[in-house]
């Protein structure tokens, strides 16, 4: 009479490859390779040294921004202000270096402090004033954009008097053109890879990285475990601000100027790169490697389409489609 029903579904650990977050990274990497093959077949110019150099340098700014935004997305937050905060940091550098004639390192420091400060304000509004991250950083997007215009008097600031400034990003440490004609690795690319390594270490080896995942996985559990949730969340947004400043350094140096009206729209490319690379918008999952692959995927796509003479407006449409595809695949992957 007694129904000794053994629990019917002792749900065995389902660790299929498809469920792991490495799957999306793997897919993104596969897509990147596929794209290389297709574009090489369609255009003889695609796989040349100078074009590869072009793709590399074109990825630098968006890649660094995307690395920064990956952290907040893993906490299940979002940062819409990374693009305009980057612009604000370039304007601050221009102000300090060109207008005030201070040495370049002071200028770089001013940029980084600006990025950290913007991140702090974002984090403060989100934790203490309890604004949703979307709103807090949407506000910051506009505040930073407006401040850039105010501080620069709506005029670009040039670094022409400091030729060394341009070398930060455009200098060449590694010249491979002897082996492959046209292939040079600009310092901007080294900065991107350096940022990626730094970010990977922070994410996987430090307390900050651990709490980044913890916040996105179950913030209440982290709080009940005694983690100072507010302080660490502010730290994460400041880290994102730091990477925005780093992207600002590369940007300003590359175009040898601070362009106050530039920067809006960059946040969307950065978020797209993170998502394509397998960072989950619902938090708790993501990797720097994935994000960097995502950033390369976006710039390779736009480079290839450009070579094939597809109008730039269509390139934007295609980027949108890729984001849809990536998120949809992510949802499919998660469903079962």
């Amino acid at each position: 009479m007694t129904t000794n029903a053994a629990p019917a579904q002792t749900s065995a650990p389902r660790t299929s490859l498809l469920r792991s977050d490495a799957a999306q990274r793997f897919m993104a990497f596969g897509a990147l390779i596929l794209m290389f093959i297709i574009f090489s077949l369609l255009s003889p110019y695609f796989l040349t040294g100078s074009n590869i150099s072009g793709i590399l340098i074109a990825t630098a700014v968006n890649g660094i921004l995307a690395i920064g935004v990956t952290f907040v997305i893993i906490t299940s937050g979002i940062d819409l202000s990374v693009g305009t905060v980057m612009t604000l940091t370039t304007v601050m550098m221009g102000k300090v270096v060109t207008d005030w004639g201070m040495p370049i390192p002071i200028g770089l420091l001013a940029g980084i402090v600006t990025g950290l400060a913007a991140g702090f304000v974002n984090g403060f509004l989100i934790t203490k004033a309890k604004l949703p991250p979307f709103i807090a950083t949407l506000g910051m997007l506009n505040v930073a954009r407006g401040l850039s215009l105010v501080i620069s008097n709506v005029k670009p600031i040039y670094f022409d008097e400091n030729p060394a400034f341009n070398q930060i990003a455009m200098g060449v440490f590694i010249d491979l053109s002897r082996f492959i004609p046209g292939l040079v690795i600009n310092n901007a690319v080294l900065i991107l890879f350096g940022a990626a390594i730094l970010a990977s270490l922070i994410l996987s080896k430090t307390v900050l990285g651990r709490y980044t995942f913890a916040l996105g996985s179950n913030e209440e559990a982290a709080r009940l475990s005694g983690v100072n949730v507010h302080r660490w969340k502010i730290a994460v947004y400041m880290l994102t601000g730091f990477f925005s400043a780093l992207a600002g350094i590369v940007m300003a140096s590359r175009i040898n100027s601070a362009q106050p009206s530039l920067g809006q729209g960059y946040e969307l490319d950065a978020i797209a790169a993170a998502v394509i690379g397998g960072t989950s918008l619902s938090g708790g999952e993501g990797s720097i490697l994935g994000t960097v692959i995502g950033a390369f995927l976006i710039s390779t796509l736009s480079n290839g389409l450009k070579i094939l003479s597809v109008p730039p407006e269509w390139q934007i449409v295609v980027t949108g489609l890729i984001v849809w595809l990536a998120v949809w695949l992510d949802i499919i992957r998660r469903r079962k």
Binding site: V207, R210, F213, A214, G216, S217, N218, E220, A221, A222, L224, S225, G226, V227, G284, E285
Partner: peptide, 18 residues
């Protein structure tokens, strides 16, 4: 249950005092 599903067992146990 107050665990962080994305973290490992050990990471969960020592969260906040790693």
């Amino acid at each position: 249950l107050n665990l962080m599903p994305h973290l490992t067992i050990a990471q969960n146990i020592f969260i906040g005092r790693e």
